[in-house]
Every structure is written in structure tokens, then in C-alpha cells.
Design a protein around this nucleic acid. Structure first.
Length: 264
DNA sequence: ATGGTAGCGTAGCTA
């Protein structure tokens, strides 16, 4: 089974690129973040035509928005809310065989890495704290689960272009990294991407729009993640970061798809 | 040190 995750940064504007991903990678399940549309405007038709007849969509006007599109039936669709908000940032559904897929868009956190000065950063930290408490209280590590999405944190030294220069930049500050690590420890989550790319090699999924030449500068960050619970770890058979998608014309997302394969 | 770009929706927020 092949699962793709992608912060598409508007599913309506980039429908053609989503269809290109489908043609080129043929994922069974696609998890999108930042769809940026209400559910009534989500382009279900062209996706259903290509076999993605099962969809769990949770969007809002203009911001956020997550979706799980699947060729395989989806059971137990759920919406999860955090920080007493109605943001569309986390949904889940179960695949045949009982594998539960969680699709998460974690708050970016703004620019200033101080929760006293910046309420967006405070929101990000609270979101993490609430999830750290939620998983062990609501799910067992024995359950086969996949957690994907834009977590807006690059935890490892080589998840950013310069560890030293990024230590004070939101997405790579020690407080965020500690909380993401604690989140990973809740159920013994396995970092699927790093199963296939050693920790000492650079690995990015996002490059800023604000660079003159993103590829030449290559100042990326690994903000997007695929985690699995221990029962699924032996099934991991591959993981691919579709770096070339950062150059897809006419208008690429600033994030690229991450694709993971699970053996039957 | 600063400013740089993008999407939504049509001002200003979010990233």
C-alpha cells in the first residue's frame, strides 16, 4: 500500500499538480494539508474519476484544511480539534485491515519563538502539549497507525540547511524539537523517512517561496513527516521525497509530496 | 539586518 502526504497550499489552484502526482506515483491514499477551501468547493469529481472515490474532507474558508483521499474504503472518519478551536487541522480514518491514518497540519507558529510575545508560537506549543497528553490516553502503541502531515517542525540537525543558523528560527528551536520528540515517544512512533535516509544526510520537504532560486540556494527544511506505530514498522518498504515537485509548473507548492510504501 | 513570495479574496491575515 502506498500513502502520499502533501501540503498542497490550495487544492483548487493546484488540482492539475495533484493529478500529476496521481499519474506519476499512483498512491492508494493521499493526505493533503492546507487545502484552503470549504468542503462544498473541494474538487471531488476529478479525483473520483481517477479512483479516489473514498474521501474524508475537512476544510474551511481560506485557511488550513485537511483531506484523506483513498481508492480503498475509509471507515470511522473522525475530526479532531485542539486548543479549543474549530481549525481544520486533524482528521483520521481507518483503512481495510484496521490501519488508522491520522492527517495533521500543525500550526506554523509565526516568526518570534517566544510564547509570551507571540500567540501563534504559544498556540503551536499548546497544540503539541495537548497531543502529547492525548495519544497515550486514547490510543495504544499496539494499534497499527500512520501519522502523516505538515508538522511544521524540522527536528534533526540535518532536517535543516544550517542547524546553527536555524536554532533561533521557528520550526527548529529546541523547545519545539523537544516537544515533537516527546510526541514521537508517546507511542514509540517510528520516523519512516529516516528509516530510509540516514540521520547524517540532508533531507528537506519544504523550500521557501522567498528565495530567488530555491534549488540553487537549497535552504530547505524537513517539515513534513510520516510516522508509524511499532506494529507497522516491519512493513515499511520504501519512502520517497518528491523533490522535483518543488519545480512543477506553472505554480508549485512550497512543500513537496512524501510517499511511503507499506508491504502487505 | 532586512526583505524577499504566495493564496485567499479583494483588506489584511496566514504562511
Amino acid at each position: 500500500m502506498r500513502i502520499a502526504t502533501w501540503n498542497i497550499n490550495s487544492v483548487r489552484l493546484r488540482l492539475d499538480l495533484l493529478l500529476r502526482l496521481i499519474d506519476e506515483a499512483r498512491p492508494d491514499v493521499i493526505c493533503l494539508q492546507e487545502t484552503k477551501t470549504i468542503d462544498d468547493c473541494f474538487p471531488r469529481g476529478p479525483l473520483a474519476e481517477r479512483g479516489y472515490v473514498h474521501a474524508h474532507i475537512h476544510g474551511m474558508k481560506g485557511y488550513n484544511g485537511v483531506a484523506i483521499l483513498s481508492r480503498l474504503p475509509l471507515a470511522a472518519p473522525a475530526v479532531h480539534h485542539w486548543c479549543d478551536r474549530q481549525d481544520c487541522r486533524h482528521i483520521s480514518a481507518a483503512l481495510p485491515g484496521g490501519i488508522e491514518v491520522h492527517n495533521i497540519y500543525l500550526p506554523s507558529g509565526g516568526d518570534i519563538p517566544d510564547p509570551e510575545q507571540n500567540e501563534k508560537f504559544a498556540h503551536k506549543l499548546r497544540f503539541l502539549d495537548e497531543m502529547i497528553a492525548w495519544w497515550p490516553a486514547n490510543r495504544s502503541a499496539d494499534r497499527p497507525m500512520v501519522l502523516v502531515g505538515d508538522l511544521n517542525i524540522a527536528p534533526l540537525e540535518h532536517d535543516v540547511w544550517s542547524h546553527k543558523q536555524m536554532l533561533g528560527v521557528v520550526s527548529h528551536t529546541p523547545v519545539e524539537v523537544e516537544k515533537l520528540t516527546a510526541l514521537g515517544s508517546t507511542l514509540g512512533w517510528v520516523d519512516a523517512m529516516r528509516r530510509f535516509v540516514p540521520d547524517d544526510l540532508k533531507l528537506y520537504t519544504w523550500w521557501s517561496y522567498r528565495a530567488r532560486d530555491w534549488a540553487a540556494a537549497d535552504r530547505g527544511r524537513r517539515l513534513d513527516h510520516v510516522w508509524v506505530t511499532p506494529p507497522l514498522a516491519p512493513a515499511l518498504s520504501g519512502c520517497l521525497v518528491a523533490r522535483e515537485a518543488r519545480g512543477w509548473e506553472p505554480k508549485p507548492s512550497d512543500h513537496v509530496p512524501v510517499i511511503v510504501d507499506l508491504a502487505p
